[in-house]
């Protein structure tokens, strides 16, 4: 565990040194522009627009980072053979994987927190103050982070047995499918085919259901998000990450390094 922490810390350091956090500049500019323009163009819904725009951007930037950095976490180390010297240290392969996962999760958490602060600033500009009901926005940010953790674990899983390009496609594909999980579940009901219904049902439960984490609209309208949902989503993300990381460990522990 401690060794996983060492790997995580180095992964975070790599992201920082690779100037990954520069995306924050882009986000900050977006928020400033939005805060300035939103009053001019969106009559009556400035406070809603700033939140939907901010949360959508946080989510999108996070997803892009999670997928593209995530698929490189393991494959880049294998490709460049930096992994050889590391695995010759008393590090188990699962510790390496866990560390890589935690390192990117930490990177994303810092990045998302910075963006959330920017969003709060923009909201403050638009609203003139921050209110208690704005906490819904914070919950939405937390949900985005949970979602990103699942995406990272999936990217890690795929990159343990296939090329970075295919891993990117698989992860992105699974993400989109996961967003549509409720629709997939409904397919059987629409067609009325019992067999298809059962297959669609089972499949939709196996998929990571990213729709669970989408409360952007509710947050934009400052609707309180039930504490129960927060707890369930947290648990859901934890379990899903555990499944993906277990799968990744099973594959990676048997893998011959080129």
């Amino acid at each position: 565990m401690k060794r996983a922490g060492i790997v995580a810390w180095n992964t975070f350091r790599e992201a920082v040194r690779d100037r990954v956090l520069y995306n924050l500049v882009f986000f900050a500019l977006l928020m400033i522009a939005a805060a300035l323009l939103v009053g001019q163009i969106s009559i009556g819904i400035e406070q809603i627009v700033i939140v939907t725009l901010g949360l959508s951007a946080i989510s999108l930037i996070g997803i892009l980072m999670a997928v593209f950095i995530g698929v490189g976490l393991v494959s880049k180390e294998m490709e460049k053979r930096t992994l050889y010297a590391l695995l010759a240290k008393p590090v188990r392969r699962w510790e390496f994987l866990l560390g890589k996962f935690a390192g990117l999760a930490l990177t994303l958490a810092v990045n998302t927190a910075a963006m959330a602060t920017g969003l709060a600033g923009a909201m403050w500009l638009v609203q003139g103050s921050l209110r208690a009901e704005d906490a819904a926005v914070l919950v939405a940010v937390y949900f985005i982070l949970l979602k990103l953790a699942i995406v990272v674990s999936l990217a890690l899983l795929f990159s343990c047995f296939t090329t970075p390009l295919l891993s990117t496609l698989f992860t992105a594909g699974l993400y989109v499918a996961g967003v549509f999980a409720p629709e997939i579940r409904a397919i059987g009901k629409v067609t009325g085919n019992a067999a298809l219904d059962a297959v669609a049902m089972g499949f939709s439960y196996l998929l990571p259901n990213f729709d669970n984490f989408n409360v952007i609209a509710a947050a934009a309208h400052r609707r309180a998000i039930p504490g129960m949902l927060v707890a369930q989503n947290t648990l859901y993300a934890a379990v899903y990450c555990a499944i993906a990381l277990t799968g990744a460990t099973m594959i990676f522990s048997r893998r011959n390094l080129k």
């Binding site: 460049k80 053979r81 930096t82 050889y84 010297a85 010759a88």
Partner: peptide, 8 residues
């Protein structure tokens, strides 16, 4: 262990 043509 020193790998062949090491890269770090």
């Amino acid at each position: 262990y020193l790998p062949e043509q090491p890269y770090f």
